[in-house]
Nucleic acid binder design. Structure first.
Length: 378
RNA sequence: GUGGGUGUCGUCAAGCGGUUAAGACCCUGGGUUGUGGCUCCAGUAUACGAGAGUUCGAAUCUCUCCACCCACC
């Protein structure tokens, strides 16, 4: 059967694992490596869809949204009635929905995991709910994203071998149930998620089990969850090559340039993160010279742009002093968040574009070094 | 001028004889990784209007003065 989403390799960097490709989806082609802005509540916070589509020089081709949140509110049936997520939120390019697996991890104290699935309490009103692989897929089928994610368990980074082994095996069993429950394989691609913590044999075990299902794409989960960078890179060193090279590879939840560059160097094609939009709402900007806090007193009368090397709407038209002023209000002015959100997203979308150029020209390593020398590691 | 009231960090404000003189805001810095939270964490202050008394001990009680506020002349 032909998958709803296919990966086409265009060029592989001569000196690293980095690769340049295209993701063909029901809602258009997506150039990879790609950064996917996150729009949890069916909106990339502080951004109009048309502005998301215009990010960078080539635009953002795919965004991420969230099963768990949309299930709780407004409810996936409402989205289905609206004609699906694309229509509901006025975004006609590709969408990927996360399965709710991460919330199982991040909202830890509100849930209970069993073989059947995860029971949890709503963070909104405390009501009880049960997420199973079948339920997650049912909701994602209703939402109608181009790529839907397997319902997995993202175990905490400090879990021991025994727990990770059980968790990984369960995630594989859940994946088989997800595939079984999937009702729209013709226009929605189900991606599997590799788990296995920081143990090579469990990663291999996971890879073997999920790759056997011949899915259109695979994610590496359970990393970038607070572990030291060496452990993160350590997993990339062996995990990426355990996945098939004719399918897209996705590392979930990475948003700092050094983590992103590291992943792409290892052959990762897709990544997402709330970092740029969340940082923006807290007055932080990612710039070619590192991260800055617009709140800092030294920007009081600094009339230069957030990033002198950036050509985004924010940097072309506004000064740090002005944006700081917007953030300094008792109730921060909304425009401040809008400007920094657009800037930070633009920054990462541009980073992906620059990486694509670098790979095409077999100079990924030089690009990476140059970029990080200027940016630093935060 | 007469009567009344009020004076504690930049601001608001606890305290009412024994405290390292709360707290909040502001200010300063930091955090944020498959987004519950315009949020969380941390830090800075020679603040008791001035002077004189009472007392072992005064921001707390007394007196004088000063400043401001409100009434009335």
């Amino acid at each position: 059967m032909k998958h709803a989403v296919t990966y086409e390799l265009i060029h592989k960097d001569k000196y690293t694992g980095a690769r340049r490709g295209v993701l063909h989806t029901p809602h258009g082609d997506v150039q990879t490596p790609v950064f996917m802005p996150v729009g949890t509540q069916a909106t990339v916070k502080a951004m109009k869809p048309e502005d998301v589509a215009a990010l960078g020089h080539e635009g953002a081709g795919i965004i991420l949204s969230n099963t768990y949140h949309l299930y709780l509110r407004p409810g996936h049936e409402l989205v289905r009635m609206a004609g699906g997520l694309h229509s509901f939120m006025n975004w006609n390019r590709a969408i990927l929905t996360d399965s709710g697996g991460f919330q199982v991890f991040s909202l830890g104290d509100l849930r209970k995991i069993t073989e059947e699935g995860v029971s949890f309490r709503s963070y909104i009103d405390g009501s009880r709910h049960m997420f199973t692989p079948e339920k997650s897929i049912e909701v994602q089928n209703a939402l109608g994203a181009d790529i839907i994610m397997a319902f997995d368990e993202c175990a905490p980074p400090d879990s021991d071998y025994k727990y990770i082994k059980e968790s990984q095996a369960r995630t594989s069993r859940w994946l088989r149930r997800c595939k079984e429950a999937h009702k729209r394989p013709e226009d929605q691609a189900l991606f599997g998620i590799m788990q296995g913590g920081f143990f090579k044999d469990l990663r291999q075990q996971s890879a073997d089990e999920i790759v056997a299902l011949d899915l259109p794409g695979y994610a590496i989960g359970g990393i970038s969850v607070g572990e030291p960078k060496e452990k993160y890179v350590g997993v990339l060193d062996y995990a990426v090559d355990m996945l098939p090279s004719d399918r897209p590879r996705y590392v979930m939840g990475i948003g700092t340039p050094d983590y992103i560059l590291e992943a792409v160097e290892h052959g990762v094609d897709m990544f997402d993160c709330v970092e740029p939009t969340r940082l923006a709402r807290h007055g932080m900007a990612m710039t070619s010279r590192g991260r800055i806090n617009i709140d800092n007193a030294k920007y009081f009368d600094d009339f230069s742009p957030v990033d002198p090397e950036c050509d985004c709407y924010c940097c072309r038209n506004y000064s740090k002093a002005y944006i700081r002023h917007l953030f300094k209000q008792k109730s921060p002015e909304i425009l401040g968040s809008m400007l920094l959100a657009e800037h930070n997203l633009y920054f990462l979308v541009r980073l992906a574009e620059k990486m694509r150029r670098a790979i095409e020209e077999d100079r990924f390593m030089e690009f990476k070094k140059e970029f990080l020398d200027s940016y630093g590691s935060k």
